[in-house]
Write a protein that binds this DNA or RNA. Structure first.
Lengths: 251, 251
DNA sequence: TCTTGCATTTGGTCCTACCATTGTAGGCAT
DNA sequence: ATGCCTACAATGGTAGGACCAAATGCAAGA
């Protein structure tokens, strides 16, 4: 039941030591690690081990590496993107039925709306409304930019999440949006959908600004009704894609 | 406005190529990559670059490396733990007020309860109830095992998530529980809390098994009332810890 | 004072040799 | 023929050295 103390994991070992030092606060964001050649002698290993260590920690998002004099490995503050990337990678291997995603997002949206009305200040609420109006206008143009508008849609979601004054909602929304970026562009190509969705965003923002919770929730509900309709239409049009998706989902 | 085509990122480059091959399905879980020395010549680089590449992909959870003959880098199917680990790491650097965590979990719990009643089969519902009863019994012992019981509490949560038939809830719950493991043990040390919490779990499971949504939601609500009380008590007892926490949260 | 250019620091790459682990094939003994 | 053991080969793990490339700073020169 004993296991070898070090079964070829020198780089993992060093990585753990450095990670621990960062988490303990012995190393703070912005600080620099010694140069590779220095650590090489400090840890008593070859330089290769140190380099592999650095790659690991860099991949974890804990380090940022710069070349040249005054270069080296700098401690980096983690940000949400690391989680988002992990999630996105995971989702590529584990496709989720659109309905499941909608179910999840609707839950979050309803709560965030509630929290936003309670906690956000008036400035933010009006800013949300302003952006929603901007989205509506953007789509009224002759040749709407789908990428820009679905980007703005994302922005609105993030704003709402931030207004909820609960970072967890913000982080999860962020990660979810990054993970599912591919599907969303397509929706904004549907003329009928995008205009009603934008109008609905405006209504939602208005209700939030006026503090009318139930009305806001009603609009949120309508938003997801629209989404479900739009997806159902797309699915019935292209059976092939649907079959593909189901197949992928099976494995 | 031009940027150098390869600013010292050979290993990242190779990693991207392999990652793409995995995502395209050109490489499937279980398959083996060529040996380091072979790839070295295939990619036209030194062996160090290949090794760094492998470390990166291993850290991402895409590879598993074995030594010896028939060893090498094997493609691995991603699992939720990678996300959980990213989140846990992130949360260590970004502490969250307990109230915010409760707010978030309560939202998920309420929806999951609703979905579980609608989608789970009777077998599962009874199994949930059985485990809840087991938790209650476990705490009635003379010397309850805090770690085991808070582990069982986690299990109950995961079961509920699975019963919702929506993998997103399952994954997020999993990640959240991994990320916040440290706080939760402590709660189960409070005698008054843990017994009422367990009894409440039983009631909740019972209501779910009987398909009584509103009653179940009522119990869920009570669960979080208990949690909030428990945390408030702890906070008022140890002002020092609380001050520490706020300080950490500021930075 | 500004520019140029050299020197230094530091990561990026290649190479080569050797060690450690593991699976297997072949030989040896029963 | 069977079963055990050993030697070998494949493969990742480590060490150390040499050189390249980029970034910075300083010094010399215009």
């Amino acid at each position: 039941m004993f296991f070898p103390v070090q079964a070829g994991r020198a780089s993992e070992d060093v990585a753990l030591q450095i990670e621990a030092a960062i988490m303990d606060g012995r190393l703070s964001p912005g600080e620099r690690l010694p140069s590779e050649r220095e650590m090489q002698s400090q840890f008593g290993t070859g330089r290769g081990v140190i380099r592999e260590t650095i790659k690991i920690l860099k991949q974890k998002g804990l380090l940022e590496v710069k070349k040249g004099a005054k270069g080296g490995a700098y401690i980096r503050r983690l940000d949400v993107n690391n989680i988002s990337e992990s999630l996105a990678l995971f989702l590529k291997q584990h496709p989720v039925e659109p309905e499941k995603l909608i179910e999840f997002r609707e839950t979050l949206d309803r709560t965030m709306t509630q929290l936003a009305i309670a906690h956000a200040d008036q400035t933010e609420k009006e800013s949300l409304l302003k952006e929603a109006i901007r989205l509506e206008e953007m789509l009224r143009e002759n040749e709407p930019d789908f990428i820009a508008s679905s980007e703005l849609d994302r922005q609105l979601n993030i704003m709402l999440a931030r207004m909820a004054r609960n970072p967890l909602f913000e982080w999860v929304m962020h990660a979810i949006q990054m993970g599912f970026n591919s599907h969303d562009y397509a929706l904004y190509e549907d003329t009928a959908y995008r205009e009603r969705a934008a109008a609905n965003w405006k209504n939602t923002a208005q209700a939030i600004a006026q503090g009318e919770l139930m009305r806001a929730l009603g609009f949120i509900g309508y938003h997801y009704v629209l989404l479900r309709q739009c997806i159902a239409e797309k699915a019935s049009l292209t059976n092939e894609t649907d079959a593909d998706f189901l197949q992928k989902d099976e494995q």
